[in-house]
Simulated assay, not measured.
Amino acid sequence: MEKPYWEGKEYSYFSHKKCEFFPCHKNADPDDFNCLFCYCPLYALGEKCGGNFRYTEKGIKDCTNCMLPHKRKNYGYVTGKYQELADMMKRAKESISK
């Protein structure tokens, strides 16, 4: 089985161990913590992000327990969702234009 094009590439993984908040999630594995997606690009997808989140009583999406964007192996999953994000933004723009 051929590995994904991004696997083993420097651009797909960045660990900022000198960050004051590293790692920013409790129980995270510091040796496999990808800081590349420090602010998750999938947040806007709501329930379609695929991560381990919950909604607070006030309706705010809480991703405290989500490691999806922070694991080295999930780079392809995250970037694979970019078209879905682009489509969502296009639909939002179109609905505003009407």
Rank of each mutant, 00 (worst) to 15 (best):
M1Q: 12
M1D: 11
M1S: 15
K3N: 11
K3C: 11
K3M: 12
K3V: 14
P4L: 03
P4K: 03
Y5W: 06
Y5C: 03
W6Y: 15
W6Q: 04
W6S: 14
W6N: 08
G8H: 06
K9I: 11
K9D: 11
E10D: 12
Y11P: 06
Y11Q: 10
F14W: 06
F14V: 15
S15P: 05
S15A: 14
H16Y: 07
H16P: 08
K17A: 11
C19L: 13
E20N: 14
E20F: 11
F21R: 15
F22Q: 06
P23S: 00
P23T: 00
H25Q: 10
H25T: 11
K26D: 12
N27Q: 08
N27I: 08
A28M: 07
A28G: 09
A28W: 01
A28V: 09
D29W: 08
D29V: 02
D31S: 13
D31Q: 14
D32G: 14
F33N: 01
F33M: 07
N34S: 11
N34P: 04
N34Q: 05
C35D: 02
L36H: 03
F37L: 07
F37A: 03
Y39G: 06
Y39N: 12
Y39H: 10
C40S: 08
P41R: 00
Y43F: 14
Y43E: 09
Y43T: 09
Y43K: 07
L45N: 04
K48D: 13
C49Y: 05
C49H: 08
G50L: 02
G51Q: 05
N52F: 05
N52R: 12
F53I: 06
R54D: 07
Y55W: 12
Y55G: 12
T56A: 07
E57Y: 04
K58F: 10
K58P: 06
G59L: 04
I60W: 09
I60C: 09
I60F: 07
K61H: 11
D62R: 09
C63Y: 05
T64C: 14
N65P: 04
C66N: 02
P69Y: 03
P69K: 04
H70A: 07
K71V: 07
R72N: 04
K73P: 03
K73T: 08
Y75I: 01
G76L: 08
G76S: 09
Y77V: 00
V78R: 00
V78T: 01
T79Q: 10
T79V: 15
G80H: 01
G80Y: 00
K81W: 01
K81V: 01
K81G: 03
Y82T: 07
Y82R: 02
Q83D: 04
Q83P: 09
A86D: 07
M88I: 13
M89C: 09
K90H: 08
K90F: 08
R91P: 02
R91S: 12
A92H: 05
A92C: 15
K93A: 15
E94M: 10
I96Y: 05
I96N: 04
K98N: 14
K98E: 14
K98V: 14
K98W: 08
K98Q: 14
